[in-house]
Write a protein that binds this DNA or RNA. Structure first.
Lengths: 197, 197
DNA sequence: GCATGTGAATTACTTCACAGCT
DNA sequence: AGCTGTGAAGTAATTCACATGC
């Protein structure tokens, strides 16, 4: 068993936050005792939609694609990479993880046949929107974008973007105010909150 | 010139949000006209701390490290990778981007000498905390973590973590509720908001 | 007329604090 | 006694709406 207080300490939040958040989805604890860890794990996986497995296609077999395929955490968490695509003939046919890289031209047919539900964009920025459109047309419900580019998707498609430059800019912001330049410039305005993670 | 309304449309937020956010840092627009794009760009770069350059060290010369070094956006945005480290002798000495990979054993000395301000963790999870401690000891003010692991840093060090598994879980959550299973299970509780990006 | 900048109103989120159960 | 689940209270973020200036 674990209490909301201990969970909160682990995550750096308050115990009330833990209880309120969980209460959005049900009552998983027992008064006086706390939460059964094994059961809570199952419940949270259910909430996150991880009780089932998801079929993922990775587009782009460069460094980012290779890094993704090398990461064993995916299948462990319930994500099966069922296809990998690239446009470069030099990359088509090579094995990446457990999959052989296919020509992106075959994406529409393969993605439909393999019932791909999530697409991962690991292409250069210029190809990202085009690939996104192909994935959406093939019926994916979600896209994870590693290309540093704003993507447009229909409202019914979930989109998350991981932009390394943006993360560094966030650090830059935090550092710039944590260690202000030592000239005589005045302090910053009200409301300037920390950008610490 | 550009109006807050047009900026808002581009970003999918409200115009009031654009104006309020900018007003936290100053008055950059002209009533009746909007914001001068070139000037606004300079002001935002100043706010984000991008008016200067930052000295970055990358630890881990695997796929993630290679992907980072291959990304030209860094130096363009003001981040100079001044050192790359790895523990694997097979990787030490090879060139990655413009840098030669050094032994992580030399990190304390090199990071101090090179005045590294931001450290990027691209190691396997087990090495991540150890490397973090080395970077903190060497005086970095911020850490960008790509290892799927919770890191502990002193309060004065800014930390951002990019966890690919977490991003996929977020998509899973969004998809699971967007396309609920077609058994007879009851609808979810109140307050269940979309996790769309 | 057009668009900013900002108090006021609204909405959302977090924390408090306690009834109720173990 | 210990801890959850949750209304109530408190804080923070967003949106409204308008005085102010171009």
């Amino acid at each position: 068993m674990i209490s909301s207080r201990r969970l909160a300490e682990r995550e750096g939040i308050t115990s009330a936050q833990v209880r309120k958040d969980l209460s959005c989805f049900g009552s998983f604890g027992r008064r006086g005792l706390g939460y059964d860890v094994a059961n809570l794990r199952v419940e949270i996986r259910e909430i996150l939609g991880l009780a089932r497995r998801w079929r993922v296609a990775v587009v782009g077999a460069g460094n980012v694609g290779a890094a993704l395929l090398a990461y064993r955490g995916f299948e462990k968490q319930g994500f099966d990479v069922v296809a990998v695509f690239d446009r470069d003939p030099a990359r088509i046919g090579i094995r990446l993880g457990t999959r052989v890289v296919q020509d992106v031209a075959s994406l529409p047919a393969v993605a439909a046949r393999e019932q791909v539900e999530i697409g991962v964009i690991a292409t250069p920025p210029r190809a990202a929107q085009e690939v996104t459109d192909l994935l959406v047309a093939a019926g994916v419900g979600g896209i994870l974008n590693f290309a540093p580019r704003k993507l447009f998707v229909p409202a019914h498609v979930a989109l998350r973007t991981v932009d390394m430059a943006m993360e560094l800019e966030s650090l830059s912001f935090a550092l710039a105010r944590a260690r202000p330049p030592r000239d005589g410039s005045p302090p910053r305005e009200r409301g300037a909150r920390s950008a610490r993670a």
